[in-house]
Structures are given as structure tokens and as C-alpha cells.
Design a protein around this nucleic acid. Structure first.
Length: 421
RNA sequence: GUGACCGUAGCUCAGUCAGGCUAGAGCGCCGCGUUGUGGUCGCGGAGGUCGCGGGUUCGAACCCCGUCGGUCACCCCA
């Protein structure tokens, strides 16, 4: 009978690869925490409507990439394809905009789902860490968010990192610009299908098209930058200045649009050179209109990013970074005589209770085999439980690096090893 | 969703082009070299539905079709 296989695009992470994964995720969360972003947990399942309204009906994510199903109560539910909509929804539901203490700063980590063709760095189930700062317009917050993401990626070990930044303006700016851009596009009657199909929902995406001839058409197209209102322009200038002050090497990218409709003003993306086609390890931006889009009666601005854990691990690998080599346990208990298995088990328990990560051999293997296992476990010390020692109420502690060993009283073993020797 | 390439031991791969003996290698794994001592070395051993299904053939890992999976690119984005 064939063994069941994982669902396509749903990756398994087993040791040792899982160590790098775990380390990256912890590094991201820790950097968020250092800036005051507190962990929240929101559902993987949401009503489909949340993403349709929040992420935007024109986006590829909503149009063709969502895992959507009807549950037994006849409701249309979706496995979250991104994190912002759910976090904002949770904040609105809890009345955060009216409860004071703004901005609130949230961090999250978890699994996301998009039905795309898998390739390097792109899985159907993937892991992101994200932050969202809600309830403030302050450009300092944009700069903080961008900087925290940058430093988190650097701390995780990503080197050739590029920060691309753009200003999408306010929603009114974009409405005006959409009209101008569409008027321009009207002058061409042979637009490629991808552009023709979505230009009225979001003509900005025309800049993304790589269809033949489109590049030439867009070269003369009116630019969003010329239709940004004074406030959004001032806001963006402030963000740029704050980031420059902190020494961030940023690249202005007027073509950076990003495929989620909720972005306003600041958008940015972190890119890695060594990663091939899927080179964005993270991205985000400001989404001042999202809350209203979701039906909240007042303006409730926000800014945030998401960093891809899987993709960051790949980037580190591609750059030749060594995998973390943490020892699985600190101590390995060896039984010299099968009759003493219960004693060895007791010693292991004693060590674990003292906070010393301990493993022991199973299946009654030879002492030689047990030492090989001890070696492989990465333990710094082996504790030998044998008849000679047992007669004296002692165990032998062997330093696996130097080979030096000594006998100590069994009751002192936990204390001695907990102290690091 | 589209295209190209790929799928042989746990891993990395040879063998496929010219179909034909028991399908190989390196690494890893297990055991032994000690009567209680690992990392080196030596000896021995286990392990393969050649992704899966069908077809062609006297005969298929090898040729053909399908399918599943992988990789890369498009697309999109983390």
C-alpha cells in the first residue's frame, strides 16, 4: 500500500532544516518585540468576504489563488492568503480604534495559503512573520516598520539585501490618477488581455505587464508620482529622510505597485539577489483606507510588513550560510549493563528535572553503539551507568570533546552537569 | 493556470542515446574488530515496486502514452 504523501506545495520541515526555520522565525519575532510589537494570534480561517473586500477584488490573490470552501453551515470560508486583513479585522472587532493607547503594535507568525504553481521559494502553504502598527498616520511609524524589518532580516543573516520603496499616494490621488491613466490607455485598442482585463479595477497593474509592446506603451504613460497630493508627498519625504538618517540604503522604485489593493502612500519590498525569480523576502506598506473598506465608519490608518520565513531560509542557504549546528541535547546517558536500564532512566529523569537536556539509548544496543549515538546527538557529556559505579552509588561522566572522564556520586551528577561541567 | 527539463538505495548520482546476464558507486546506516567507551581506520552486512498506471516487444530502468511528483521560468508575491 502506498504511503500517503504531503499535499502538493505543503512542505515538511524536519531536522536539521527545521532548525534554520525556527531560528529565522524567532529572530523576526524577537526584532518585532524589541520595537514593542506584541504577539497576536488570529484565525487561519476567515470569511471569504474579508479578503474579497480587504485585499481587493482585482488582485490575483483574490481572483485565483485562494483556498475557499463552503462549510457545513453553508458559509464561504477561506484559508488566509495574507495576514493584514485578519489582524485589522480582529482589531476592529475588539473596538481597538476607540479604546485608546494608539497606535497599537502587533506581531504575528503563522501559516498562509495561496493556490499557485509551486516553485523555488513559492509554496502553497508558507510561513510569514508580520507586524502591523494600527491607529497612527505618523511617518515615524512607517520608518520604524521598515527599519525593524530590515534589521530583522539582517539579524537572520541575509546579506545582499535591497530595499525598494515607493509612494502610492492617498486613495483620492489614486482615483484621480486611475482616471488619467485609463484615459491614456484608451488611446490603444490592442492592449494585451492581462491589461485589458484588469485596467478598470486597477490600471496600475499595467506597469507590471511584460506583454510585448506594453513596455513601450508604458514608457510614455502618465506617472503616479505626478499626481500625488501635497500631504502624501510630504509624508513620503519624511519617511525617506528618517530612513536615510538611519543609514538605510533605499532604492526608489516608481514601478513597485504590489498586488494588494489596500496599500496607500508607503509601499516597500525587501529583495535578495541570490534568490532567483522569487526574490522578495518581505514587503509591506501603509493601508490607511483598509478599515473603511471593511466597513469601519472612520478612518483607521495602519502600516506593516510580512517577511517570508521559508524564503528567508532559502536565501540563507543560497548564500551558503552554514545551517545552525546546535546540539540536540547536552548529555547522553549510556547504560553499560542491560540490567541497569531503570537506573539509567532514573538518571536521565534527574538530569532533565535539573534543566539539563538529556537523551539516552533505546533498544538495548551495545555500549559502542550508544557512544556513537551520544556523539551524533551533539551532547557535550556522556554519563555512564554501569555495575561498577552502581556498586558505589556513582556514575561516570565523560567529556565527549576531550575524552576526559571522572566518577562522581550519582546524586551530584545533575548539579554538576547543570553547572556546565 | 502556461511552458521546458527531470523522477534509479536514506542522500548525491552512474546506467537510458544503440532494449538482453543476479541494477551499480560514493556517502550514510547496522554489526564486528573490547571482557563497559564515540569521533579515525579495517572487515562484514542490510537496504531498490528503477515515481505510478498502461502500451510496444520474445524481453523494458531504458522506447511510446497517460498520470502523479520535483525543478526552473512565465504569472504572482512571502
Amino acid at each position: 500500500m502506498a504511503v500517503p504523501e504531503a499535499v502538493r506545495g505543503a512542505p515538511d520541515w524536519l531536522p536539521p532544516g527545521a532548525r534554520a526555520f525556527d531560528l529565522v522565525e524567532r529572530t523576526f519575532l524577537e526584532h518585532a518585540r524589541l520595537a514593542g510589537y506584541e504577539r497576536v494570534r488570529v484565525p487561519v480561517l476567515e470569511h471569504t468576504e474579508l479578503f474579497a473586500r480587504g485585499v481587493g477584488a482585482s488582485t490575483d490573490v483574490v481572483q485565483k489563488e485562494m483556498y475557499t470552501f463552503v462549510d457545513q453551515g453553508g458559509r464561504s470560508l477561506t484559508l488566509r492568503p495574507e495576514g493584514t486583513a485578519g489582524v485589522v479585522r480582529a482589531a476592529l472587532q475588539a473596538g481597538v480604534p476607540r479604546s485608546g493607547g494608539l497606535p497599537v503594535k502587533y506581531a504575528y507568525a503563522g501559516e498562509f495559503f495561496r493556490h499557485e504553481r509551486p516553485q523555488a521559494g513559492r509554496q502553497r502553504q508558507f510561513t510569514q512573520v508580520g507586524v502591523e502598527a494600527l491607529g497612527s498616520d505618523d511617518p515615524v511609524l512607517d520608518a520604524e516598520v521598515v527599519l525593524v524589518g530590515w534589521e530583522a532580516l539582517r539579524a537572520a543573516g541575509v546579506d545582499d539585501l535591497v530595499l525598494r520603496l515607493n509612494n502610492l499616494g492617498d486613495r483620492e490621488d489614486r482615483a484621480e490618477y486611475h482616471a488619467v491613466l485609463n484615459a491614456y490607455l484608451d488611446r490603444f485598442d490592442d492592449l494585451p488581455p492581462d491589461v485589458a482585463g484588469r485596467r478598470h479595477l486597477n490600471p496600475l497593474r499595467a506597469f507590471d505587464s511584460k506583454a510585448p509592446g506594453m513596455r513601450a506603451i508604458m514608457a510614455d504613460a502618465p506617472l503616479l508620482g505626478d499626481h500625488i497630493g501635497p500631504e502624501a508627498a510630504r509624508h513620503h519625504a519624511a519617511v525617506v529622510e528618517l530612513l536615510r538618517d538611519q543609514g538605510l540604503p533605499l532604492t526608489h522604485d516608481p514601478r513597485l505597485v504590489r498586488g494588494l489593493d489596500y496599500y496607500t502612500r508607503t509601499t516597500f519590498e525587501y529583495q535578495v539577489g541570490a534568490l532567483g525569480a522569487q526574490n522578495a523576502v518581505g514587503g509591506g506598506g501603509r493601508y490607511d483606507g483598509l478599515a473603511e473598506e471593511l466597513g469601519w465608519p472612520e478612518r483607521f490608518p495602519g502600516v506593516g510588513w510580512a517577511l517570508g520565513v521559508d524564503r528567508t531560509v532559502l536565501a540563507l542557504r543560497a548564500a551558503g550560510a552554514a545551517a545552525p549546528t546546535d546540539a540536540r541535547v547536552a548529555v547522553y546517558v549510556v547504560v553499560a549493563d542491560r540490567g541497569l536500564v531503570a537506573d539509567a532512566f532514573a538518571v536521565a529523569t534527574q538530569l532533565r528535572r535539573a534543566g539539563v537536556a538529556t537523551d539516552l539509548a533505546f533498544d538495548g544496543r551495545s555500549v559502542r553503539a550508544q557512544f556513537k549515538a551520544a556523539d551524533r546527538s551533539g551532547a557535550s557529556h556522556a554519563v555512564v551507568v554501569g555495575p561498577d559505579e552502581a556498586a558505589r552509588g556513582a556514575v561516570t561522566v565523560r567529556d565527549l570533546r576531550s575524552g576526559a572522564q571522572r566518577e562522581i556520586a550519582r546524586d551530584d551528577a545533575a548539579t554538576a552537569l547543570a553547572a556546565g561541567s
